[in-house]
Design a protein around this nucleic acid. Structure first.
Length: 822
RNA sequence: GCCCGGGUGGCGGAAUGGCAGACGCGGAGGACUCAAAAUCCUUUGCUCGAGAGGGCGUGCGGGUUCGAGUCCCGCCCCGGGCACCA
């Protein structure tokens, strides 16, 4: 496609200028109003894919737009540079992950530069930078000292493919690893955890006030999973001094408890099992603890196999409501690490209990009257209580309250809040991550590495082999050290931290990357935080955002960040995904459409414009065989802007007339449309408004009668300023041509619409009969209801259609429409 | 199963309860050209009609309203998230 200008030369020129001159460097003490714009910390997977391009197109638009609005905009860049893909690639190539990673970083950086995205490059941060690692480790130690990091043995998710432990968050619903797809196994290992559960309530509560997509807020709430209920005792039948403690959210159904269930991991199981049942229970427990999470959860469909997934323990407990003895079962549908690991079972009102009761022939007693027509199964809805002694006749809410009081008085009951959220397992048995700065001494136990010895950096002379085991674990020089307390030989921790820890505080380092003696200066950080606009993919809706929120709250609480707001990301925008052939575009799927080809041909501005124009920014984009044509269309639009700014085929007249004035009014209306579009993330309509304006201008200036020259010049300048955040290279170039020696378009102020210029001289009013359009009339925009009615009824088409009859009713909504009901 | 989104021309999409389809892609016709590309102009929801003009149209069925793509009720379909959390 021949272009009227040299796209590549223009883009290179401006990219070099922005980079070399540090145009978008910004000081913490800048006197202008501060604005922190941030795109999510990218993993350096190589040159950018269209998802990155989309992200940085939006981010750069925000940066340039807010700058033109007179703000000091912090726009930093860096790399989430630790992670498994680099390690796997290094194993394959027999090289070091750093070599691989830094090559990928250079590629990604080149892509964002070629996109024309602007950053304060002095603030660049990357996770495997020892300067960053030092403080990542210092934070770990501070958490450790504050009791927020602890070591515990726990059943963990072990992925055989990745040869590492995974966080709950990295295990998919079907029990497979999110990365490798392998079936995750359960193992008991000593691991490091962060006590994120201490913050469950605050993390849940603070979600409400965030200006985030509702969808993301809901996901966060669901993930935290708060549930209120009662914990109480079910005394053992044989020894009423001992009891099985259970948690329930439905104390009101207590009269319907016909059995109890403990998890296979329950500590009291040994006491509960009688000799007769021991063999069967042992078999079940072994199966439950050794089989994968998948098998344990898979059979939820219609409760199949339930008879094999539970066994009678031989013991009985006493239902405090009925004083009846009920059997205790062990079953794998009860989880050991939630609540008390034991439940009261109410088959009539709980689906799972119902299925289990059916499978084992257990008694079912309804305690809530199901509605008319309800036939079979558990009923968990509203209704009046029956078969429930003192609760009879009460609705669910009142019965809950009464039952809770009863349990408090008779069964050591306490109201209790449980969360689905678990502590964050941060240990990873991998090499390419930030080492956990801990030493194990035979005498002194767990000893933190002194801060002055940080960072603990992995050695370079490692052999990345195919065993899958971290080379740190077997590297004698790394592993063997001395105890910081006593100086005797000791072992280093060889696990590294989950890479989500790196992305949990990078935005704080961006705000102050200059401090050498601390992770960030809280006074400097507070000058930018919280992030005013965070932009990233929906795939981080739970993990990254939850962890980063936790980090900030914890850092404030341990005294590292006084004065910071407790939520790091005030506004979040989640962009849609790019899909090719219906599936998400990602490197692992090999379905990337590299942007480099577009940079070389249509140019970055056209590609940016495409991403803005193709649809609502939050929606997914289907990359189809029509896409290249749409991108060409965007390039065509830019060409037309260029030609018009060179008065290509234009004619002029000297005296400004009414038509010229109306065109300028159209420009001012466009200012409103574009500004509104940018403010409410409607970039596609903002671009459309500019296209419409160009159509108007070019039609007007190319008529033989011509256009008023000064009016065209004013219009062009306004158009270029509105287009500047979207297509920065071309607008910068044209502005320089039109205003040599003056400051650039991006340094000029965002246009303000003149209120006197946005109204039209006349507008088209629609006249309907019975809601069908019968006439269109030119009327003044301020026409009154009476006048509107009068001119409507006088219109020839209306007179003809009505045929002299008096209308029953006239609805006038001046100046848009009049509807006549005959 | 539960919780969110979303169903509008051939396609991407637009529309504070007020002219459905802005803008773009694609298509058709034309101008320029020896020719093509590029560019420019016209046209383009479906349908009946030679035409003027008419009818029908926002997943389906109801409702509210002078007026519904938009609000309410009940369905269907697609996408995403969660899913033994007691």
């Amino acid at each position: 496609m021949p272009r009227p200008f040299d796209v590549t030369a223009v883009e290179k020129k401006w990219q070099a200028r922005w980079f070399d001159e540090g145009t978008y460097e910004v000081d913490n003490d800048d006197a202008r109003e501060h604005f922190y714009a941030l795109c999510m910390y990218p993993y350096p997977s190589g040159s950018a894919h269209q998802g990155h391009i989309r992200n940085y197109t939006f981010g750069d638009l925000v940066v340039r737009y807010q700058t033109m609005r007179g703000k000091a905009v912090l726009s930093p860049f860096g790399f989430d540079s630790f992670g498994l893909p680099a390690e796997n690639a290094a194993i394959k190539a027999g090289s070091h992950p750093r070599v691989f990673t830094e090559a990928r970083m250079a590629e990604l950086k080149s892509s964002v530069l070629r996109l024309g995205a602007v950053f304060d490059w002095r603030r660049e941060v990357y996770s495997h930078d020892p300067k960053y690692m030092k403080w990542a480790q210092a934070i770990f130690l501070a958490f450790f000292e504050a009791g927020l990091a602890y070591r515990a043995e726990a059943p963990v998710n072990w992925c055989p493919g990745c040869a590492t432990v995974l966080a709950n968050e990295q295990v998919l619903a079907d029990g497979t690893c999110e990365r490798s797809g392998d079936l995750v196994q359960r193992r008991n290992l000593e691991q490091w955890f962060f006590k994120i559960t201490d913050y469950a309530e605050e993390l849940l509560h603070d979600v409400d006030a965030l200006e985030w997509p509702e969808r993301v807020k809901t996901m966060q709430r669901n993930w935290i999973g708060r549930s209120e209920g009662v914990e109480f005792d079910l005394p053992l039948e044989v020894d009423r001094g001992r009891a099985l403690r259970v948690f329930t959210t439905r104390p009101d159904t207590g009269f319907g408890v016909t059995y109890a269930v403990v998890a296979p991991e329950h500590p009291m199981l040994d006491v509960l099992v009688t000799d007769d049942e021991r063999a069967a229970v042992t078999r079940l427990v072994e199966r439950a603890t050794q089989t994968s999470e998948l098998e344990r959860t898979a059979s939820s469909d219609a409760g199949s196999g339930l008879e094999k997934r539970g066994a009678f323990t031989g013991s009985f407990v006493v239902n405090p409501f009925t004083q009846e003895s009920v059997p205790v079962y062990v079953a794998d549908y009860v989880l050991g690490n939630y609540g008390t690991g034991a439940i009261m079972a109410v088959p009539a009102e709980d689906e799972r209990d119902f299925a289990f009761a059916k499978a084992h022939g257990l008694k079912i007693v309804r305690t809530i009257e199901p509605p008319e027509g309800f036939t079979e199964g558990a009923y968990s809805g509203e209704g009046a209580h029956i078969n429930s002694g003192f609760l009879n006749g009460l609705d669910v809410a009142s019965a809950k309250a009464a039952a809770t009081t009863f349990l408090e008085e008779h069964a050591n009951g306490v109201t209790k809040v449980n969360y689905r959220l678990r502590d964050w397992l941060v240990s990873r048995q991998r090499f390419w991550g930030c080492p956990i700065p801990i030493v194990y001494c035979d005498v002194h136990g767990i000893v933190p590495v002194p801060v002055e010895q940080l960072p603990v950096v992995a050695p370079d002379d490692v052999v990345m082999d195919k065993s899958g085991q971290s080379p740190l674990a077997t590297h004698e020089g790394f592993r063997n050290t001395t105890c910081p307390v006593c100086g005797e030989p000791a072992r280093r921790e060889t696990d590294t931290m989950d890479t989500f820890t790196d992305s949990s505080w990078y935005f704080l380092r961006y705000a102050d990357p200059f401090s050498e003696d601390k992770a960030f200066d809280p006074v400097q950080a507070a000058k930018w935080m919280p992030v005013d606009q965070y932009i990233g993919g929906i795939e981080h809706a739970i993990l990254h955002l939850l962890y980063a929120r936790f980090y900030v709250k914890a850092l404030i609480d341990i005294g590292w960040a006084p004065g910071l707001e407790r939520e790091p990301f005030r506004r979040l925008f989640t962009q849609g995904m790019i899909r090719l052939d219906g599936s998400k575009m990602s490197k692992s799927k090999g379905n990337l459409v590299a942007p480099e080809g577009y940079f070389d041909t249509v140019g970055a501005d056209a590609l940016r414009l495409f991403h803005l124009f193709v649809g609502p920014p939050a929606d997914d984009v289907d990359w189809t065989n029509q896409t290249d044509e749409v991108i060409d269309g965007c390039a065509r639009f830019l060409d037309r802007v260029y030609r018009l700014s060179h008065y290509d085929e234009c004619f002029f007249h000297d005296q400004k007339n009414a038509e010229d004035d109306e065109v300028l009014r159209e420009v001012h209306r466009t200012i409103l449309k574009v500004t509104e579009g940018l403010e409410r993330w409607s970039y596609n309509t903002a671009v459309a408004a500019l296209m419409e304006l160009l159509n108007t201008l070019s039609k007007w200036a190319r008529r033989p009668e011509g256009a008023h020259r000064a009016t065209l010049d004013d219009s062009l300048d306004l158009l270029l300023r509105l287009l500047a955040p979207m297509a920065p290279h071309l607008t910068a170039e044209m502005w320089e041509e039109r205003h040599p020696g003056e400051r650039g378009v991006h340094a000029s102020a965002w246009p303000e619409a003149d209120p006197a210029m946005v109204t039209r001289a006349s507008v088209v009013m629609v006249v309907q009969i019975d809601a069908k359009v019968r006439a269109r009339l030119d009327v003044p925009p301020e026409i009154s209801e009476a006048d509107a009615t009068r001119v409507a009824l006088a219109a020839p088409e209306i007179v003809a259609t009505l045929g002299g009859a008096t209308p029953q009713r006239v609805v006038a909504r001046p100046p848009r429409l009049v509807n006549i009901i005959p």
